[in-house]
Amino acid sequence: MDTAISLSDVTKRFTRKGLPAVHAVDRVSLEVSDHEFVCVVGPSGCGKSTLLRILAGLTPVTEGRAAISGETVVSPRQDVGIVFQKPVLLPWFTVFDNIMLPIKIYGLSEEKASAAARQLIELVTLTGFEKSYPHELSGGMQQRVALARALVHDPKMLLMDEPFGALDAMTRQVMNVELMRIWETRKKTVLLITHDIAEAVFLADRVFVMSARPGRILETLQIELPRPRRLQAMTDPRFADYVQHIQKLLGLDESAAMLGH
């Protein structure tokens, strides 16, 4: 298996005139193989989004090296699809045109891609909504459009930043199962950021647990739950063990007790 993503000693400091530098990410190293599904969990503000933006080529590292398929990341790459925390759909475009946006921008053949777009619409179960506008969709549906958009040009890799964070718990589970299904059929490399530990364990082959700022990798967990996974996987006793283990790593068990949970 080849290395899809590699971070070696990546450090990120944000500096602004007159302000103390924010040390967001501290010497993070990790490797992700092709077709692997990995999740990054960590407390709020620990630099998860920063890591993703570095991989997306939207912000440079301060020190270290970020590489995709062996090439140092210097700018956004066409073989990477991104799903942001918000759907970020263009309100003046229909669902179909929103999904086709990367094709238009990359100047790829729209004729060829429209078949792919229709398949994706089916895959994210939005058939019948091609001509709808974003404001006519629910939050979950909008995020599925964003997912289809990220996949339309068939990138090798998906970077997802809390893609379902804004959704209610129930819709979120549905989306996670759908994401699993899509990943199983399409076999992409996926890096998904979340602060929901159960979500990370449910989805990932491996979970990277990050510390509070400055973000470091505390531990990498191999999740040995069988695939294909469906919601029943959450009832597996090992599932609870993984979740508890990560909670302990993040010091959540004590604070949860203090909050009376």
Binding site: A56, G57, L58, S75, P76, Q78, I82, F84, K86, V88, L90, W92, L101, P102, K104, I105, Y106
Partner: peptide, 23 residues
């Protein structure tokens, strides 16, 4: 956020204008 989306797609300035800024 939409602007960032366009950056992530490496949209040209003309494309930014046409698909994002003008609308």
């Amino acid at each position: 956020d939409m602007y960032e989306l366009f950056l992530s797609l490496k949209a040209s300035r003309w494309q930014q204008l046409r698909y994002l800024k003008l609308p």
